[in-house]
Structure formats: structure tokens, C-alpha cells
């Protein structure tokens, strides 16, 4: 089984629109949305949820005013100033370390486990999908991403699908780290802007760190041809395949407004034919073809 993770570093490069378009092109894959914080893939795939499961995160301190003697022990120990002088816990600031719970001489602090999100197994017109929603202002996004990817693998195995297409989160932090470990390959969707180049470089460094093969796809490449040339040079120097140059096209936004992938919106347009080539190039990279004989 192979897992292709789509990342971008910088947000807004068109990562999710491309992931959805690839889902239309891959004949039979499992979709996995690892952007649990601001997931958008479902807006294009309209998944029908078949199974919904609560995601348990860490605990949160709750002080029982009946038992509390206002000794101030917890206030002094808390490194997040989450317990004010009035001995009330600020749930947003609480890190869930539970140190106050263990040190409270009156045992006045409870530590209930919080439900901090939900994850779903769904069906879409392009195949099954595993996705999640982290609660607003919650922590543990990395844990939820890890869980979603595990479930995606399990489901793909059950259904006999050998490709998982994962829409990754932006950035290079905790949820991204949880998205790349053990992936077959990563496609970085970048754009020819100074920010796009800067963030791509950091995303590449991250993938190197976790020893995952990387390929680069330049979206809106005609917006700044000089910067696109710079991206190609950087990829070449790093020995990374450039799998596509996708022109800027308002059709992507129009497709999004209709809740369609670009190929469903206009399968005969120029952007669609470019995307077909990009997908073929991705599936032809050494990372994606490796071991194909043995698998078949």
C-alpha cells in the first residue's frame, strides 16, 4: 500500500484543490484529510458520514469550590498561569499537565478527560474517506492526525485499496510532522512567490529530516516566471522531481464554488489536461513506482 501526502508549507497554494482533482484521476483510492484544524477537502468531496467517533484528548483541571481552601498551591505551581488568584481554571490556558491535581493538599481538583474532536469514516464519489474535526482552540492536533492516518491505513487494507491520498496541513509544526512519518512520498504544492519559495524550502527540510521522498508541483507558475525558474533550480539542486507547472486559472475557484473538483467542473479545459499530466508524472516517480512488480 502506498500513501501520497500533499503538503504545501504555505497555506493557500491550492493544495486541497489539487488533492481533490487527483482523487478524481486516481482510479480507486482512499482519501485521508490530515488537515484536522481547518479541513476543507470535505467541501469538494461532500462525504457521507458512515461512522463518527469521538476523539479523547488530555485532561483539564476542574476545581471543586466546596473542597478548595484557597491555599494557592496550584496557583504557584501552574506554569501557564491558568489558575487565577480567584482559584478558577482558565480552560483555554490549561495545558493539561495535571500537576495541580497531584499537589492539591485538599484533593479538590478533578481531571476529567476532554473530548477534543471527532473523526469520521465516510463515502465519497471518489472512494472512502477518513477525516476529522479538532475542536476549536483544542490541542493534540498531532495525535488526531496520527489516529486519522492509522485508520486510513486500516480501512484501505480492509477495502483492498492500494493508494491513500492524504491532504496534509499547512506549516511544518506538530500536525505536519504527524502527517509525513512513514509516507511513501510527499508532493509539495508551491507557488512562485517569495513566501511560497521560503515555505517550500522548510517543508523540504522537514521531509528530509523524516527521510520521506519529495516531489514538487508549481501551482500558478505563470504568476511570476522568474520565481518559478528559481523553484525549478532549487528542486534540481536538491535532486527532487518537478512533477508539474500548473497555470493560474480562475476555473479552480469556480469549481470550488460549485463543490466540484476541477476535472468534474471542466474535464476538457486546459487546466484539466495539465492536471492529467501532473498526475501521470507523480505516479511515474521512482518513489511511487518502487515495488510495483512485487505488489502486483
Amino acid at each position: 500500500m502506498k500513501e501520497l501526502v500533499i503538503l504545501s508549507g504555505k497555506g493557500g497554494t491550492g493544495k486541497t484543490s489539487l488533492t481533490a482533482a487527483f482523487a478524481t484521476l486516481a482510479s480507486g483510492c482512499l482519501l485521508c484529510d490530515a488537515d484536522v484544524d481547518a479541513a476543507d477537502l470535505h467541501l469538494l468531496m461532500q462525504p457521507v458520514i458512515r461512522k463518527r467517533t469521538e476523539f479523547q484528548g488530555g485532561g483539564v483541571a476542574v476545581i471543586d469550590p466546596q473542597r478548595c481552601t484557597s491555599c494557592g498551591t496550584c496557583v504557584d505551581l501552574c506554569r501557564w498561569s491558568a489558575i487565577g488568584p480567584d482559584v478558577v481554571v482558565d480552560e483555554i490556558a490549561c495545558e493539561g499537565c495535571g500537576v495541580c491535581v497531584d499537589f492539591c493538599p485538599e484533593q479538590a481538583i478533578d481531571f476529567p478527560i476532554k473530548t477534543c474532536g471527532q473523526w469520521f469514516i465516510s463515502d465519497t464519489r471518489c472512494g472512502p474517506m477518513v477525516h476529522a474535526r479538532l475542536g476549536i482552540a483544542e490541542e493534540n492536533s498531532g495525535k488526531l492526525v496520527t489516529l486519522v492516518r492509522q485508520q486510513a491505513r486500516q480501512l484501505a487494507e480492509e477495502r483492498g485499496l492500494d493508494l491513500i491520498l492524504t491532504d496534509g496541513p499547512p506549516g511544518v509544526g506538530c500536525p505536519v510532522i504527524a502527517s509525513v512519518g512513514g509516507a511513501t512520498s510527499v508532493v509539495i504544492v508551491t507557488e512562485p512567490t517569495v513566501s511560497g519559495i521560503h515555505d517550500m524550502a522548510r517543508a523540504i527540510e522537514l521531509c528530509r529530516h523524516f527521510k520521506v521522498p519529495v516531489m514538487v508541483c508549481i501551482n500558478k507558475f505563470d504568476l511570476n516566471p522568474d520565481n518559478s525558474t528559481t523553484i525549478e533550480r532549487m528542486a534540481r539542486e536538491g535532486g527532487l522531481p518537478v512533477v508539474g507547472r500548473v497555470p493560474f486559472d480562475q476555473a479552480f475557484t469556480r469549481a470550488m464554488v460549485q463543490g466540484k473538483t476541477l476535472l468534474e467542473f471542466d474535464g476538457n479545459g486546459s487546466a484539466a489536461s495539465v492536471l492529467r499530466q501532473v498526475w501521470a508524472a507523480i505516479m511515474n516517480t521512482p518513489a511511487m513506482t518502487a515495488g510495483q512488480q512485487t505488489a502486483a
Binding site: A38, L43, L134
Partner: peptide, 30 residues
């Protein structure tokens, strides 16, 4: 970006939040 711990750490105790968005389905949802 997002709504989890990093953005909370950045916005907490500020006087005003200016939310930048775009008029697309992704923009609205987020």
C-alpha cells in the same frame, strides 16, 4: 493559520482580531 493551540497563543489577550478571508467556500468555512 488554523484554530488550535498556536493561533490561540498568538491571539490571546490582544485588543482586536482582524480576520482576513476570501469569498470562496474554503474561505467561508475556515
Amino acid at each position: 493559520p488554523g484554530t488550535s493551540c498556536p493561533v490561540i497563543a498568538a491571539m490571546k489577550d490582544t485588543d482586536f482580531v482582524l480576520l482576513v478571508t476570501e469569498p470562496t467556500p474554503f474561505g467561508l468555512h475556515d
